[in-house]
Design a protein around this nucleic acid. Structure first.
Lengths: 355, 355
DNA sequence: TTGTATGCGTTATCAT
DNA sequence: ATGATAACGCATACAA
């Protein structure tokens, strides 16, 4: 209930200010401000009195004035290529939760995948004077170093937080999963169980996508397998087009490529691989093994359920916020935190359980 | 590039103000402000001069001061029970896109499903002085009218926008899909194709969930079918637990319930129904028809692909923002916009194509 | 412990 | 068309 006043017959809401409260409570605005900011230097009973007046009058401090005075509105910018993406949406969710629990607001900004839009969106957030910007997903770190200049520039102003990407620069903090290691491990598991002919399927060239691919290649190398380009296939269509992915895999097969397993950089791709097997009458996992990535709900909806790499999204998200809040409080925080991935075995593989 | 100054050997960034620009350009701050706000009353060449100085100095207006002066920071609050939910995430995505295109920022706030948290989150956003709040998803309209008082209160301050829910109150605007009609149509299609024994499966009691259920019941009534409670089953577990949903359906069957079709209030539930059929060795669609809801990516990942109700999420989202921006600009806008649903037929049904 | 006075960087209302 | 100046509502250094 805010203050109201009757004005020419109309009852109108009036926003109270710190001045109103100070008069009502019989103190100065400084004291009111101190109560507001929980300053220690206020006598308990005056504090009580002021709080009482605030309560009864329904006073609410003006957030803009507060922002101007403190030069902060306790707001964090969340940059994200596509918040409707299953994986990114979950990350945004975890991040927002923890930010709010820490007293921060989250301003969301989806950029799409074009570099120019990423840049301008980041600048937009900085103009809005957010306390920090979180780049959700590894699509913000470009392979070409010069293209990452916009991140260095931003780091001059506020801490920049990277979720599942790494960029070595002052005031840039990273929390990520060891995608390289996880993919390598997945590939090694298949190879060592007697399935060396693996198709690696991917649809992104982001930082983590590059790491996953490197993990696959490293596994091949470790086991002395030829690093055949033909077995590393990039799908360039829409990742929502399950049918199209299915056709893509079919075309690979029809082109003479032979493989008894598929490792996909994403659960959608893996699901499509399972569909492909069904269409071709191949049994899973005896004739075709499939490993997905992200351990999303798709893994559970799939039939049989997908073996998938859990990339610890919740952990890295929460750690990111922890690092951020620490940094904002002036506490030294690690610039890089890495979590190991974990292979969750389900029905699309028949791997021996780890010793 | 911002202004820099060398201070005790350290080069430090300095935030320029409107005063600095006015001096550099040889005009008053009022003129600078006019240029900033694209006021007509500025001579073209002075405008040019001011803009040039701004450009070269890298000046950026202080968003907080601007907010204080204009009493707005062009920010919309987006309230959402769970932004990681497939459906809600997409809605948030569309909304944020269009808001930003319209010059507004989006501050996201996930509330969870407890009424108390919804209330406090809404109040949090209002304290932050957002220009409006969008309630994404129908979980914000309670069945008990008194529980919606927090929405009436909020509508006193700013326009409240409801996505896929309806609430008749001044300054509340709604954009939604006719879930009742769509569900009714889906049920009628099955019934009229000779499958009257339909299990309706749902897992929410939100506004739209109530409408969907009513649609199913109305279809039964229209065709003179007994409105058997046993055929309307509420699943109370986690909707991420596909296995659990599967078991739930099995238990219904084992309890003696017989049905040749399942209509689900959600694609996850429908996917689980398909899994159930596979486990039981029932053929789809000849022995069991399944219709999902939301027409999400799950419908495409499912095997066979799910017949699902497209509830026009993109349309209602974009319409919502259109209505909001119009309202904020003082243009009279419809308080309620309803879009029809659309049944997208795929492999889990064998319905005759509409005449 | 409390009050006074000033600053924060704009917008907006007057004049000129 | 432009300039001086007063809000805007709070935080805070300094004084008491």
């Amino acid at each position: 209930m805010n203050g109201t006043v009757t004005l020419s017959g109309q009852e109108v809401d009036i926003l109270l200010t710190i001045y109103d409260i100070s008069k009502m409570a019989g103190v100065s605005i400084a004291t009111v401000s101190r109560v507001l900011n929980e300053s220690a230097n206020v006598r308990p009973d005056t504090r009580r009195k002021v709080l009482e007046v605030m309560e009864q009058s329904g006073y609410t401090p003006n957030a803009f004035a507060r922002g101007l005075g403190l030069n902060s509105m306790q707001t964090i910018g969340i940059l994200c290529t596509d918040s409707s993406d299953l994986y990114l949406a979950k990350a945004v969710y975890y991040i927002e939760q923890d930010l709010r629990a820490g007293g921060y607001h989250s301003i969301l900004c989806c950029t799409g995948y074009r570099l120019e839009n990423k840049k301008s969106s980041l600048e937009l957030l900085l103009r809005q004077k957010v306390d920090s910007v979180i780049l959700v997903g590894s699509n913000f770190i470009e392979a070409e170093d010069a293209d990452n200049q916009y991140i260095r520039d931003a780091a001059e102003q506020v801490p920049i937080m990277l979720l599942n990407a790494y960029f070595d620069h002052p005031n840039v903090f990273c929390s990520l999963c060891d995608d390289l290691g996880a993919t390598q491990q997945a590939a090694l598991s298949l190879i060592d169980s007697g399935i060396p002919d693996i198709l690696y399927l991917y649809n992104s060239r982001s930082y983590s996508a590059r790491k996953k691919l490197a993990g696959f290649q490293s596994a091949c190398q470790l086991r002395g397998l030829p690093n055949a380009d033909a077995l590393q296939q990039f799908y360039s269509g829409s990742s929502a087009d399950v049918e199209g992915i299915c056709r893509f895999i079919s075309s690979l097969h029809d082109g003479g490529l032979s493989f008894r397993a598929v490792i996909a950089s994403d659960d959608v791709l893996a699901t499509a691989a399972v569909k492909y097997a069904r269409l071709r009458g191949q049994r899973i996992p005896s004739e075709l093994s499939v490993i997905g990535y992200n351990n999303s709900i798709l893994a559970l909806c799939c039939e049989p359920e997908l073996t998938s790499v859990d990339n610890r999204l919740e952990e890295i998200s929460r750690q990111l916020v922890k690092t951020l809040i620490g940094t904002l409080n002036g506490i030294p925080m690690p610039a890089k935190t890495v979590f190991p991935g974990r292979l969750v075995q389900r029905g699309t593989t028949a791997l021996p359980s780890p010793a």
